[in-house]
Each structure stands twice: as structure tokens, then as C-alpha cells.
Amino acid sequence: MVKYIIKRLLLAVLILFSVSVIMYILVRNIDLNALWEIAGGGNLSNENAQERFEIVAKAYGYGDNSFWGVIKGYFSWLGKFLQGDMGTSISYQQPVEDVISKNMGISFTISFVSLILQLIIAIPLGIRCAVNQYGKLDYAATFLTMIGISFPTFFAASLAIRFFSVELGWFPVQGIESSLPVTATEWDYFWDRAWHMILPIAVLVVLSIGSWSRYTRTNTLEVLNADYIRTARAKGLSERSVVYKHVFRNSLIPLVTVLAGTLPTLFGGAMITETMFAIPGIGKLAYDAMMDGDIPFIMGYNMFLATLTVIGILLTDIMYAVVDPRVKLA
């Protein structure tokens, strides 16, 4: 087990190294709008803009875009990265790790709350569907969950904003807070934020219930066919206790492993949802950074995401062995 984990960790380092090489080479080829902004002071028609841009780019270490220049830039980035320094974000003029940690809270809150809601709704639904396989509920749920799976996030978000925020006026259109009076208490701020988060969370939940409940349904059906369930029935247990004691627990086993894989979504932010609702989470910041060509932030964010993904995959594999002792890691 320990040997396996060490082997996988070494592999993870190799993967992350390759991802960083690919990312860096690509990122060096994009337009550095953020640097243009600094060079031109916002005025790009400045006649000296090109000259000034080159000076600024050189100062930031992005002046030489030749092959060796990029290689050199990569290794200086890597050297700092290995020492735990992700560089300074050009747009925010703050260390990248600070920008990420400061804005992760909102993204994490949204992702975490929606994940909990998804599980609360989807697991019972999936089990009910499996128990009444081919029943009316099962067909209806299959159809609706398929629609949920197929719905593009941005379309659902657009519809939600259009109808719930604009047409009905129930929720704010965008942003994370509205201007409150000076007399507002902590609670007012809290409720204001919660009110802003309802719609994005609702969109995330509605769209993800489908895949969770389908997964639960498949697992439950597998468990329902198992011999120990037949034994439980043969013992004369009530259907209730068969389903809720014997089936329920066992159908959760594969779910635990999948949960480990949600790590990147949990911390990495929902880029499209955040961009749609203009929520200043890490996903929106990353989107803006990529549009601006803020190289340190793009690299930092993507390495953060890739690390989370690698850890998520590793955790998934380990969880298999943890929840099911029959699985041997090799």
C-alpha cells in the first residue's frame, strides 16, 4: 500500500511537470493584454506603446519569445514554483497564492453547498428509482435527469437569470453583494450574500443531480441483485429494512470513491457559472486572467487545478481499497 502510494506520487510529479511544460509553452504565446495595459496606461493608441510594451515585457521577463527565451522563462518559473513562490499576478499586483486563497472561499462555499444539496436529493432519488425499476417514477426521473445532464450550464444560467432575476425579480441578476446601508449588521451581510448565491447554487444542483442519481441507481441495482440481499429477504426482513439497511449502505460504497474525484470542482471554482453570475470566485478570476494574459496567475491557477485533479484521482484509487477491503492495490 505504502509502496503503491509512493509510486503513484512519483508518477504524479511527472504528470504535473509535463502539464506545466505544456501550459507554459502555450501561455507564452498568447497576447499579454495586462502588460499592454501597464505599458500604455490604458491607452493603447499611444505612439510609443509598442516600445513601452517591450520594456515592460522585458522587465516582467516575457520579452524574449524565442525558443530559448521560453525555455529560460520556464525554468525560472519552475525554480520559483518549487520554492513555493508562484509569482506576482500582473492584473492584481499581488502574489498569486494570495489571490487564489483569498477568492477560494466564495467558490468553495458555492461548490460545497451545491454538492451537499446534490447528494441529499440525488441519492434517495436514485435508490427509489432502482427499487421501483421501470416504474413510473423511474421513467420520469430517467427522462428528467437525462435532460439535466444534457443541459449546457451557460444556457441554464442564462435562462435562470432571464426568468428568475429579470422577469420575476426574485433574485439579484449578478454579483455577490448589493450595497447595504451603513447600519447593516453582520446578519444582513450574511443574508445578502446567501441571497446572491441561491441562483448559482440552484443551477449547479439542478444540472448535477442527474449524473449522481443515475450513478446511485446503477449501483443500487447491482446491490439489489447481490446474494446477501436475497438472504436478507429470505430471513423475512421487511422490505423497508432490506432497502434502508442493507441496500442503502452498500450502494454508497462506490459513491465514496467518486466523491474523492470531486476535489477539483470543489476548490477550483465553477468557471462558467461564476462568469455568468459575475461572482468574483476563483473561476471568474481565472477566466479574466486568461483573457488578459496574466501569465503568473494562469500558471498558478492551472497548476493548482492539475494538482487537485492528480490528488483526486489518487484519492479515488486509495478510497477503493479503503471502503472495500477486497480490492488490493498493486
Partner: peptide, 8 residues
């Protein structure tokens, strides 16, 4: 598969 799709 470890490269984040939308960012890339």
C-alpha cells in the same frame, strides 16, 4: 486528462 479542459 490532467490538463484542465476549459482553461486550456
Amino acid at each position: 486528462s490532467c490538463i484542465p479542459t476549459i482553461p486550456i
